[in-house]
Design a protein around this nucleic acid. Structure first.
Lengths: 224, 224, 224, 224
DNA sequence: CATGAATGAGCGTTCATTCAT
DNA sequence: AATGAATGAACGCTCATTCAT
């Protein structure tokens, strides 16, 4: 590593930009790179949602060297976890927006879940893969932080849900969301991994039916 | 083949074999050896339910050579699948017995599910692992056969379930079992993979709560 | 193993056949089995002349157990060598017959070589395979015996050849046969191993051309 | 990149790198490493020309990790093929040089063939091994490219040969070279694989005799 | 003689990660 | 910060041969 003195010599001219701005710019650039890598991983994964992808592929798709990827993500598992979390947050964001628009009823939630997860060729395979690696390969600090963030989303959206359904007591919203999510995850694993039955055939319908029952058992019976 | 008389002469005293049969020539001895390998795999897996085990470990635990294991199972994935299926069948068998004893209500099912799956350190991790490998690594013929067997169990137990709950129409029993199973599988993945929260703490309770809601939404409301 | 006394008891009736005949019958039966195994190996090999075959395949094709094959051939290499030698002897036998019929000129030899080796999908691949294993995997005693037998054939046929060509001195016939054989073997390896150029296209023609030159260089110029 | 001045400061005394470059970053360094691996393979092979070598041995001999070898050669078969081709090219290069020096008569060719192939403990065993694996284990694109390169060499040297021998028509040179090569390859397999008769005894003499006949049959009779 | 279950050494290849440049 | 060459542990599977039955 080069000493400060050296640096002063080799970068003699560019002195100007104020510290804060510079840092901010760098931070922006860094975040941009991160997103670019995630986008690359997503692209690669979309081409073959089931196959386990390699870091070389991701790096190539991001037009970066393999080593560079490791400057932004400490491991493959955490890279994939970050991608997964981005998708989770997209879903929660959509749910919150629906909540603000007063459309957080069963149909509204189902539609968003369908759009973000059920119909995405990526969401559920990636979710399963990441959950499997969570405790085997991810440092516990990272795992805990991830779980805490998801919990917070869950709690927040759960609260919103409780506004819409009188039958839900405090915490009941988060709990309902959680079990709904579990249900979807489990059903996908039991139904989807089959080339004979491509994705959306019965899966969408079966999930809807089960979710409807689950919600009916929790809150005042929905339309059905 | 030697006559009984001869046998009496040449093996005069020792009636039962002094040691475990070294070679499995009869069909039942072969089945026994198969089970022994499965037991060995189970033992190895129990020591570290999360880690991916190797065939060498299994062979060693079974006191057999690596190649011998491959006489009984064509691949690691199919060995694990067989182990998983054995556990699945144990559960279904227990459910059928409960059905015959007229105890196939929610509490009865929950208790059996708890005993066989929730409380087993093996069942759910193995289930997830096998489901993940089902389409990636298992020949489609084997996959289809496995699915068909499980479907048959599901249908049979579903029918039995429909006897107990007037609210279930034909096929509703299997469907309810299926979504219950999905729910458990999903919740396990979301909750369990954490060394900080060892298995049975909240998991059991949360699963019960969610299952109860699911069933309540499907059939005449259970006790709760 | 059973004692003589036991044998006397368990095979009480069949006493008659004279020793010699019996041995001869057994020897015949044994030889028949040997040939049957060789035929099975040939059949398997014909199905895929390039692939390395397994003893299990041979045993199955011979409708015998794997272990039984080892009662007749001490190893896979020697089994294949025996098969190869049988083909070599077929060729030599045909050459001798041609010699006795006075047709051991170039055209006659070429025709027989073509029929037995060039046109056979088995001969040359097997020859190369066996030659490769000769010193690596075959006991030296077996190797020497094989070489001696082939040398004898070579010498005998060489002598016959010398009758037809005044230009050949003593030993020249065997030498010419030997180099002809080498030429064919080498050309096959350089030309054949290609899916793009299936066997008989140019190979036959090129071999003939080269052989003709070789013979022309040795003896009084042949017809061409 | 650091300026010369800087370098002078940070690495004040030692001018040339004290040890072999650890990383091959430049194209020529990469080529050098490729050659080093080939040299290592050659060394290992020389120790036991018949035995099938392993990549681990090659890597160890090259003082590299096993994985590194795979950065330069996609498979063992292609590594060996590259080594073989290097030897083939050495031979063709020598033939061309002889041609330019006007010494491409029979004696000249024989001497070069002797030096490069017959007397090398490596050349012919490796040639046979590579020819055997060419269609079984090498991607067809690689195979075709290899064959094309050898064909080009053959054609070029064949043309040169035709200058020296009036009796050779167009294409006759390549054809003569080709059959000569076949003859050598075949004779080596028939004669050499024997520990009782180490290489150079009769082999050299027999090859010469056969080649002489082959050439005599093609062109104006050489001295003999 | 016949069987076929059991053996176990042997190996090429991948790929996440590191670190010299 | 960026690169990409180097690393090396990890592993499932085959199959010729043996030998208990």
């Amino acid at each position: 590593m080069r000493s400060r003195a050296e640096e002063a010599i080799t970068t003699p001219i560019v002195t100007s930009p104020p510290r804060v701005t510079r840092r901010a710019l760098q931070a922006d650039a860094k975040e941009e790179r991160r997103q670019r890598i995630l986008a690359a991983a997503e692209k690669v994964l979309l081409a073959a949602p089931h196959r386990e992808i390699g870091m070389a592929e991701v790096a190539q798709a991001a037009e970066l060297a393999k080593g560079t990827v490791y400057l932004y993500f400490p491991s493959k598992d955490e890279l994939l976890l970050a991608l997964h979390e981005r998708q989770v947050e997209d879903l929660f964001r959509a749910l919150l927006q629906a909540s603000e628009a007063g459309r957080l009823d069963f149909e509204g939630v189902l539609e968003l879940v369908d759009r973000h997860a059920l119909s995405s060729p990526l969401y559920l395979p990636l979710a399963v893969r990441c959950l499997a690696s969570l405790d085997a390969a991810v440092p516990s600090a990272v795992r805990s932080a991830y779980k805490a963030r998801v919990s917070a989303h869950l709690k927040q959206t759960g609260h919103a849900l409780e506004q819409h359904f009188a039958g839900l007591d405090s915490g009941g919203g988060a709990s309902l969301l959680f079990s709904s999510y579990s249900l979807i995850l489990g059903m996908w694993q039991l139904l989807s991994p089959d080339d004979a039955h491509p994705y959306p055939l019965d899966f969408r319908r079966d999930v809807e039916q089960a979710l409807r029952a689950l919600w009916r058992g929790r809150v005042a019976p929905p339309s059905n």
